[in-house]
């Protein structure tokens, strides 16, 4: 039981990190970046390449964060910026296009087969008669640290407050001298860096990489962001953790295990029906 809880929390941390990227981009740039999940895959392949070139895992992690950040910024500039002001549907479809683009490029370069990535091997530690893998603990701790850091950043730094301003009222923020383009670029950069971190933790748990690595976690993290209330940073964290724990507990019950994904999505629908803006979402008034 305890072991499942820890697994759930650590998976939740991974989903939360990805969901944070989704929610920040949605809140600030007002768009759904469907390609976000595939940034994880980009990070994972960077690590694979570093390891194949006999680099140290830490270098791999740093490289992954850098590559993902750059990728995020480039994607924003090339695919999303021209569509600012266009209908949300168009942006969503472009995002889907970008996602496929990333997946096919990865397949062309690395092949479609799953490849093993041994980032680090950790032993286990006994906590109250459950064997907990140290990698899981690291994910939890570092993930929590990153999330706390992000919250502090958004609340107390100048850039962070500028991000909040843009998300509330872009026009007014512009009037107050905020460089909206730069803020959006920074948002994408941070989101992608978080995705890279999520990728690293993912590899610690599941040491394999393939072009479709980011697809399912991306969708689930999106669901997590929506559950928590899209546009809200604490909401994304809450949604991620909830989804991760639910998934692991569903998997640990043999009768429910095949339906784990269905249960997660059913939970999403249920929460949306009861509270359409998500648990911690902010109500938006629609004016005529």
């Amino acid at each position: 039981m305890l072991s499942t809880l820890f697994d759930g929390l650590s998976l939740g941390a991974i989903y939360a990190l990805i969901a944070l990227g989704y929610t920040m981009v949605y809140g600030i740039a007002k768009m759904l970046n469907f390609a976000h999940g595939d940034i994880i895959m980009v990070g994972a392949y960077t690590i694979l390449t570093t390891l194949t070139m006999n680099g140290h895992p830490i270098i791999g992690v740093v490289a992954a964060v850098l590559v993902c950040t750059v990728a995020g910024i480039v994607i924003e500039k090339v695919a999303y910026k021209p569509l600012r002001g266009a209908s949300p549907l168009a942006v969503l479809i472009t995002a889907i296009g970008v996602s496929y683009f990333l997946q096919s490029v990865a397949q062309l370069i690395f092949g479609s087969k799953s490849q093993a990535v041994q980032l680090a091997s950790f032993g286990t530690v006994k906590i109250a008669n459950a064997e907990i893998n140290i990698g899981t603990l690291i994910t939890l701790v570092v993930g929590a640290v990153i999330m706390i850091a992000l919250t502090l950043f958004v609340k107390y730094t100048r850039t962070g407050r500028a991000m909040q301003a843009v998300s509330e009222d872009r026009g007014a923020a512009q009037l107050m001298g905020v460089n909206v383009n730069k803020i959006i670029m920074i948002t994408f950069a941070i989101g992608s860096a978080l995705a890279a971190a999520a990728g690293v933790f993912y590899l610690l748990q599941i040491p394999a990489v393939s072009p479709t690595l980011g697809s399912m976690p991306g969708i689930k993290a999106f669901a997590a962001a929506v559950i928590g209330g899209i546009g809200s940073i604490p909401g994304a964290m809450l949604g991620g953790v909830v989804l991760g724990v639910v998934e692991k507990f569903a998997l640990s019950v043999p009768a429910l295990a095949p339906y784990a994904t269905a249960i997660e999505f059913a939970l999403l629908i249920l929460i949306l029906l009861v509270r359409p803006i998500g648990i911690l979402g902010k109500k938006r008034r629609e004016k005529v």
Binding site: A79, L83, G85, A86, A90, T94, G97, V98, Y100, F101
Partner: peptide, 14 residues
């Protein structure tokens, strides 16, 4: 993917 992105951007970019 490239066609999709280009077509959508062409049709929708303000």
């Amino acid at each position: 993917a490239i066609i999709l992105i280009l077509v959508v951007i062409y049709n929708n970019a303000p």
